[in-house]
């Protein structure tokens, strides 16, 4: 069996080819334009950020040797040759790490509670009045957009140095983030139970309690756990501004060039974050099945 490839007549082919080239060249031109604009923005940004490649090349050795130094003990040996010496402050660091975990736990719980109270006012389908929804939404947006550490800086001045400022900063930031996610869950909830409850003459509060809450608790808990994970990372740097936790130790070690301490503290933080990630993942899987993991 022979196959014949049909070839179009010359004229038709030329027209089609021209159309193809035109289409492709237009797309290429647009891509080129995009690339040029992007490159121009990069160059502009390079001036804005005072990028100095010579500094980078001169000091890049420092970056590599920095890691060499944080992996060397005062005695000049590698850190893993003497674990006891490397982790000499383990007891203290573990206590600070515990404090960090507590900060993120308490902050997440307070934030989740506030978000729970506020989100029914922010959701499209349950809010009692439009202007209330507008106000609550703007409030949540504000709490979410201002970075947690900026709140911490201000709270350290208002509430004094210590973990309290960190807890409150994390609580406010979590309220903003969770409030938005929670209200999105409520917006996806089925409204038929609400109508059923309302038809019995129940108040708005009872409608929320008996029609909405049973539908959404699983989603709430899942997001709250996810938030806890994020807050553990966030709490580990709260100490940079004096708001408690392991960050305090770390910033002192980095600023005062206690090299082996830096690597030891970093390693404990990384391991803790791993453990928290894995265990909350496991907990979410246990509580809500695979689907609820997003």
């Amino acid at each position: 069996m022979t196959l014949a490839v049909s070839i179009l007549p010359e004229q038709q082919l030329a027209v089609l080819n021209a159309a193809y080239h035109q289409a492709v060249s237009r797309r290429r031109l647009r891509l080129l334009l995009g690339v040029v604009v992007f490159a121009a923005a990069l160059v502009l940004a390079g001036f804005g950020a005072e990028v100095n490649l010579r500094t980078l090349f001169t000091y890049f050795g420092n970056f590599v040797s920095y890691f060499d130094r944080i992996l060397t003990l005062d005695s000049g040996q590698r850190v893993w040759t003497d674990i006891g010496e490397w982790f000499w402050g383990l007891r203290k660091w573990l206590r600070m790490l515990g404090e960090t975990l507590l900060i993120s736990y308490v902050g997440t719980l307070i934030g989740a509670t506030f978000a729970f109270c506020l989100n029914f006012f922010a959701a499209e389908n349950t809010s009692p009045s439009p202007w209330l929804r507008f106000v609550v939404r703007r409030l949540l947006e504000f709490a979410r957009t201002v970075p947690g550490i900026v709140f911490a800086l201000i709270f350290v001045i208002a509430f004094g140095l210590g973990p309290m400022a960190g807890v409150l900063a994390i609580a406010i930031h979590s309220t903003g983030a969770l409030g938005k996610l929670f209200s999105e869950i409520v917006e996806n909830a089925d409204m038929k139970p609400v109508e059923g409850i309302r038809s019995t003459g129940a108040s708005w509060l009872s409608c929320m309690r008996f029609a909405i809450v049973p539908q959404v608790t699983a989603g709430y808990a899942s997001y709250a756990l996810l938030r806890f994970e994020i807050n553990v990372r966030e709490a580990s740097v709260m100490g940079f501004v004096g708001a408690g936790g392991i960050g305090q130790e770390l910033v002192v070690a980095i600023r005062k060039f206690y090299y082996s301490d830096v690597s030891a503290i970093l390693l404990t933080i990384i391991v803790t974050v791993f453990i928290i990630d894995i265990s909350t993942g496991w907990l979410r899987g246990r509580l809500f099945g695979r689907e609820a993991r997003t």
């Binding site: 420092n62 970056f63 920095y66 550490i149 990372r233 966030e234 940079f240 770390l250 060039f257 933080i269």
Partner: peptide, 15 residues
């Protein structure tokens, strides 16, 4: 696992 702020502190030491 290491926060951006920590990396910033490290790079300040370098550049």
């Amino acid at each position: 696992g290491v926060d951006t702020l920590i990396w910033a502190l490290v790079w300040i030491n370098v550049v």
